[in-house]
Computed example of a mutant assay.
Amino acid sequence: MTKRGARRSAAEDPNLPCPCGSGLPYAQCCGPLHRGESTAATAEALMRSRFSAFAVGDADYLLRSWHSSTRPARLRLDPGQRWTGLEILGTDRGGLFDTAGTVRFRAHYREAGRPGVQEEHSRFVREDGRWVYLDAVPE
């Protein structure tokens, strides 16, 4: 049971806008990827779906979409951190016919009532034909 007035997430109401910022409902955007009904067509689409997974608390999807050579054994998401917005700052390759690509992004969150930002330049590759997160490019 949720507390009265608590904010509902896109995972609880798939008609809410997708956390990735596409403007589409979660059910038509990142929801099918999270449920394993489809795969990301591009590195950017995977990045967006991973941000949404953080936003809705889907650690299983995050692990499934992580490259086998860099994936942690388990992942514990911080329940006190609420992911609030995503900005894609740039991409390099990572398209339909590529096997690797990078996405630079800025992810916004709130923790203990304070805003925060995580900026990263992430590498993505295809593993078994599907896009997966490899690691962050050292700055």
Rank of each mutant, 00 (worst) to 15 (best):
S9Y: 12
H108S: 15
D135S: 14
R130Y: 00
E127W: 05
R82G: 00
C29S: 12
A6W: 09
T2H: 15
L63W: 07
S52T: 06
E127S: 08
L134W: 08
S9C: 06
R104E: 14
G5Y: 15
Y109S: 05
H34E: 06
R130L: 00
V56C: 00
A55C: 10
R64D: 12
M47H: 06
M47N: 08
S49G: 10
A6F: 11
Y109Q: 01
D92Y: 04
R82L: 04
E139M: 03
E44H: 01
E120M: 05
C20L: 07
D78H: 07
E120F: 05
A43T: 11
L77I: 12
R82Y: 02
E120N: 12
R7P: 06
Y26K: 09
H108D: 12
D92L: 03
S68I: 03
G80D: 15
P79Y: 06
H121S: 12
A73S: 14
S22N: 04
A41Q: 09
F105M: 14
A55I: 07
A59C: 11
P25E: 10
T70D: 00
A11C: 04
R93A: 15
L24Y: 06
G90D: 05
A45Y: 00
S122C: 05
D60Y: 00
L33F: 09
R82Q: 11
R123A: 09
T70M: 03
W66Y: 09
R50D: 06
Y109K: 03
R4D: 14
W83N: 06
W66L: 03
G31Q: 04
